[in-house]
Design a protein around this nucleic acid. Structure first.
Lengths: 251, 251
DNA sequence: CGTCTAATTGAACGAGATCAAGACAAGTGG
DNA sequence: CCACTTGTCTTGATCTCGTTCAATTAGACG
């Protein structure tokens, strides 16, 4: 989260979001302006803090500007499952705009900075800017698409492949917003986090990471990911970026 | 799929959809009319037929009127994972409206009847009916919420609990559209289907079903589900219907 | 230099997979 | 009406991937 973060303009709260959206469709200057004006406030939070707790009724959504955030659910016995890891430019709780009562927890995995977007401004967008509405809707469909891929991962991929897949996805998503270098990116997470995100135990994640490292496919260490063999990593994970819908077309 | 199906008006293609939507928000007569006019055609398909293949670019979405449909993805080695099972009243590929290129397969699990809704009519809705747009958007967010619950299921629940959870969810969803009786409903699926939907093998599903039957919690046999102890079934599955967002509130 | 938290490694265990063989029901053709 | 498919369900035996339990090491930090 240091050097690379500077690749996007840290002073423009819309920077990453626009990179993400414009990879999928055109966003006019007017629409950009509307988005800009929808931000009411910018906040920061240290790592580990909950942002939204399940069951809460939301009246504003959050746009992640910096850091990593996850959506997760806990079982009664304490087991945790991470549904999605969010990176800068992701609209965290756009789901909350219409679901109102949020069904999962959202927490900061690193120190984060995010913008607050009140629901009434989103509602205004749905009333006056149909195309922008479709773009925002689309971005929630992207979340759903990633959810589906995760279901496939956890349901049918082996432990190594699941981890490999997660590292592939984050690489592509971070690169899109300028937060990944050439076959490397900062990922300041713990092995437990990867475990919670892949439906494994941290012990097993540790062993599989060692395997990936020994096989010279990818190294995750000290909060950094180094991809040694991108082709092999993708093949191992059966990673095909189609589900990320990186085609620019009218939505 | 026989007696119960008559509970809703089979002649009204919007019957189930409206039941589903009106459980979550008000739908005005005008909006109902707009939805009705968005249907271009009604089709039927026998069991086992693919409806949409991954990678296809769609120009119309489908509203399921009758039968069971699933969204699934296959691994290279032939393993299948079902992401979601759809029941009457579900908008199958509303996701395709904005994603355009669909990232997963959609297939008929039983003989089905569905309505085709061209994308240009959906687009018109986003331009002229903001509230109806939000309702449709909301319904895709429901899919995402179910996806998240499935991630939790496959990632952290035991085999019995996963099956129990699936049977709970289908009970509630079918009941909502009048397709489930009192602690019983028709579910004309094979054990392999349940396996593909829970990330298990059919052999193991078979054993777990026997366990559920022996423990007198629930019986799945001959395409029918009989819930003997709804309380215990929910407890076993850690099923909490909150994620189905069954609250009527302005969206 | 002690204290915490995270990473690492080993050994034993177990849930679920895999392999293989029957049982059963519903056709289907002779 | 019976022999013969065919597909699904069922059950047993064995194996394996990932878990669990437990102990050790390594880093970071005051």
């Amino acid at each position: 989260m240091t050097a690379e973060t500077c690749a996007i303009d840290r002073d423009d709260p819309l920077g990453a979001l626009l990179l993400k959206l414009r990879a999928r469709d055109l966003v006019s200057d007017e629409e950009e302006q509307v988005l800009r004006e929808s931000i009411a406030e910018i906040r920061e939070l240290p790592a580990g803090k909950p942002i939204v707790r399940a069951g809460t009724i939301l009246s504003e959504s959050t746009l992640l500007l910096d850091g990593l955030v996850c959506r997760y659910m806990d079982m009664a016995d304490g087991q945790r499952q991470i549904m999605e890891i969010h990176v800068a430019g992701d609209f965290l709780d756009l789901h909350g705009f219409l679901l109102k009562r949020i069904d999962h927890n959202v927490g900061a995995m690193t120190p984060v900075r995010f913008a607050l977007v009140p629901h009434d401004r989103l509602r205004r967008i749905t009333e006056e800017y149909p195309h922008l509405t479709r773009i925002l809707w689309f971005s929630t469909l992207l979340d759903a698409a990633m959810h589906r891929e995760k279901i496939l991962s956890i349901g049918r991929r082996s432990a190594v492949a699941r981890i490999a897949h997660l590292l592939c996805e984050l690489y592509v998503r971070l690169k899109l917003v300028g937060l990944a270098g050439d076959c490397r990116y900062a990922l300041p997470l713990k092995q437990v986090d990867l475990a919670d995100a892949t439906g494994l135990t941290s012990v097993h994640v540790n062993r599989m990471l060692r395997k990936l490292r020994n096989d010279e496919v990818v190294t995750f260490r000290g909060g950094e990911v180094l991809i040694h063999d991108w082709e092999r990593l993708q093949r191992l994970a059966e990673f095909h970026e189609t589900y990320l819908h990186l085609e620019r077309r009218p939505r």
